[in-house]
């Protein structure tokens, strides 16, 4: 039987930290110890930040993004191109695209992908709202930035079908050579996709 080294309050902290992605029991222990040591400089502001965030976080009614205001910062940004709508699976994907600074349009967070096996149907996702946004007159292009998995692609086909009558261009992300990537190291599937989708130089 493992011996408990700290009181229940600290044990509970460790237990909760270990539920965070990327943290196993060992690193949770280290993080907890670090917090305990830096009570004033780190633990207190972190507690305040967590409380603050918990209180103010809302899901954007327009796009499904998570922010502390509604509509979210992205939707409220008037300088963005309103003709471009990028559909992503989840907020993490939105953040990734924003980090890259690759999109000057607006987003739509679906909240996952269709998965018959996991019982996730169209009604469980923000698909209906995407379709209605895509029909707004200023929207000219919908980018389906979804995973290249069976479920991701099924979702893309589904949305494409529903948007058939909308006057928008439907595009998806290209598959191919990563920036700075050497051909030699690419898997065959990616390589053949890259050749198929080659572009003019």
């Amino acid at each position: 039987m493992r011996r408990v080294v700290a009181g229940p309050e600290i044990e509970r902290l460790i237990q909760l930290l270990s539920k965070l992605p990327g943290l196993g029991p060992r690193s949770a222990r280290r993080a907890a110890l670090h917090l305990v040591k830096k009570r004033e400089e780190l633990m207190q502001p972190l507690t305040a930040a967590l409380g603050d965030a918990l209180e103010k976080i809302v899901v954007c009614d327009t796009c499904g993004n998570i922010d502390t205001r509604n509509p979210c910062m992205v939707c409220a940004d008037e300088t963005r191109d309103h003709s471009l709508l990028v559909a992503v699976e989840n907020v993490a994907d939105l953040w990734a695209l924003e980090r890259a600074g690759a999109v000057n349009g607006r987003y739509h967070v679906l909240g996952g992908t269709l998965s018959a096996l996991d019982g996730i149907g169209p009604d469980d996702l923000n698909i209906a709202s995407l379709i209605s946004r895509a029909h707004e007159p200023e929207v000219k292009e919908v980018v389906l930035a979804l995973s290249a998995t069976v479920d991701g692609q099924t979702t893309a086909h589904y949305i494409t079908d529903l948007l058939r009558d909308a006057d928008v261009k439907i595009t998806r992300l290209a598959h191919g050579v990563p920036v700075g990537g050497e051909l030699d190291y690419l898997d065959e599937g990616t390589l053949s996709a890259a050749i198929r989708q080659r572009t003019l130089f």
Partner: peptide, 15 residues
Amino acid sequence: DAKWMDAIEHEVAEL
């Protein structure tokens, strides 16, 4: 949902 089925079959056929 017939459209959902269409989408799945699209994927099935391709694979």
